[in-house]
Simulated scan of single mutants.
Amino acid sequence: MPVVTPYIPEYITVHIGAPSSGGENVTVTFSNYIKNVASSEIYPTWEPPALRANILAQVSFALNRVYTEFYPSRGYPFQITSSTAYDQKFIPSRNIFENVAKLVDEIFDDYIRRQGHVEPLSAKFCNGTTTTCDGLSQWGSQDLALGGYNSMQILRNYYGDDIELVIDAPIQGIRLSYPGSALRRDDSGPEVAVIQTSLNRISQDYPAIPKIWPVDGIFGEQTENAVRKFQSIFKLTSDGVVGKSTWYKLVYLYVGITRLSELVTEGQTFFGISFQYPDAVELGDSGEKVNVLQYMLAVLSQFNDELPLITIDGVFGPVTREAVRAFQEKKHLPETGIADRKTWDYLYREFQGVSETVLDNPNLFPSERQSGADADTDYGTTTQMTQFPGYPLTLGSHDA
């Protein structure tokens, strides 16, 4: 949730011992941290593919802790611990093996992720002899290397065929996700979109929180109401303002619900929808801008029989082109089948009109079903089966 693009931190702060212990916090460069972990966890005499596979797992696990703000969201002033019961072994001031240090220098800015996911894989591992786990077996990786496996074959053996390697990730200082000041009504920007997306996902497990639609990065009445309900449920000051405590409670719940810090995870795939005109969208294009275009067309087709139904698949094919042409004909625009700026603006204005007059109308689509005088404290009054998600469900729809 916190950041769109994972990065390699210049420095990482390690707590010596279990999270709640009184141990010191040690700040080291990320590459030196990995050198220490690798020298503490594996043997330098192992085959190079086994060493490489283990180091990539260690890098990815640490980056997952940084990306998910696993400990800061719990109020701790560090990114990871030295306890193998929670994280991976780190021994202050230990000797570093020369061949391990050289290999880490080559690959400390590479990491594993699942295809289609944003977050670094929480690449858990164990020694494979005295302890076993669902992740990588350290001694097993050496056996596979001796059998001729390369590092990616070893990793896929343990983590699955759907993993990929990100090469040369950017390096920067630790970036806390909290924007630095509270977000409230009438604010806008990507941080608001993060709030909206997070609340929508959390509401699947806590359905008393009303859905927000559209996810547009604008802190309006819907967002304020959802924030208030979230704060009420989790015993925060119910003021509708997202300060630091509310922000990190959102991070904590979002990461936990989606299991972003687990080996088996729902995965982080997107952060909301931007309706800002990207550039001309036309036949052969693909990606998020096509998804947004198709979504607006799909919504409008529910209210206008002149527009054909389309599948939201992120691919601008002939059917999408015909839908654009049909909309252009309806609006007396040049029928090019290309979503240029004028077509996009007309399309967005009509979509917004439907959203404001129909989808946001509480009489037509109530976000909560009240029951009794104390309905505000009755978290069971809205259920996943009865709460309208805030937008029409059509072919290709998916959860936030």
Rank of each mutant, 00 (worst) to 15 (best):
I310P: 00
L183A: 02
G17S: 04
E119C: 04
H15L: 00
G22N: 13
G17Y: 06
E335K: 13
C133I: 00
L136C: 03
D205V: 09
T377P: 01
D313P: 06
L250H: 01
V255N: 03
S141W: 02
A182P: 13
G284N: 02
T130L: 02
G160C: 07
N64W: 03
Y149T: 03
E322P: 02
L359W: 10
T223M: 09
F316I: 02
N99Y: 06
Y248C: 00
I96N: 12
I80W: 06
L253V: 02
F230K: 08
K211D: 05
L393P: 04
D374K: 08
M296A: 10
K235M: 13
A208T: 11
R184V: 06
S203W: 03
V315W: 07
Q138N: 01
Q172L: 06
P9H: 06
N99R: 15
Y67P: 00
L51F: 05
D110S: 07
A339L: 07
N32T: 07
S137W: 01
A53L: 04
L253W: 01
P366W: 09
V104L: 07
T27R: 13
L56R: 09
R321V: 12
G217R: 08
I55T: 11
F327P: 11
L155M: 00
I16R: 02
G75V: 10
E329W: 02
G173M: 02
S274I: 03
R74P: 13
F327A: 13
L393T: 14
E47W: 13
N64M: 05
D143N: 10
S301K: 07
A193N: 09
E221F: 00
G396C: 03
Y11F: 15
R184Q: 12
L56W: 05
P207G: 03
D110G: 04
S203T: 09
D87T: 00
D378M: 08
S21T: 05
V166E: 14
E119P: 04
V315M: 09
S198Q: 02
V3M: 08
W344L: 14
A298E: 10
K289I: 00
I195R: 05
T13W: 02
I163V: 10
S151N: 15
F303R: 12
E329P: 00
E282A: 11
S20Y: 05
E164A: 09
Y76S: 01
Q204N: 07
L260C: 07
R184S: 00
S245Y: 05
L51A: 00
D345M: 12
I209A: 09
I202F: 13
V3D: 11
R52G: 08
V4D: 14
W344A: 09
D187W: 04
E106H: 01
D168R: 15
A375Y: 15
Q138Y: 08
F90L: 03
S151R: 12
S60D: 14
A339C: 15
I202Y: 12
A123S: 08
I112Q: 04
A323Y: 08
N25K: 10
V227E: 10
L395H: 02
F365R: 11
T5E: 14
V59E: 12
P19K: 10
R74S: 10
T130M: 09
S286N: 08
K235A: 12
L283P: 11
D187M: 06
I209L: 08
M152N: 10
Y295N: 09
E191I: 01
N200K: 00
S367P: 07
L393W: 08
D109Q: 15
P92S: 10
L103F: 03
I8C: 05
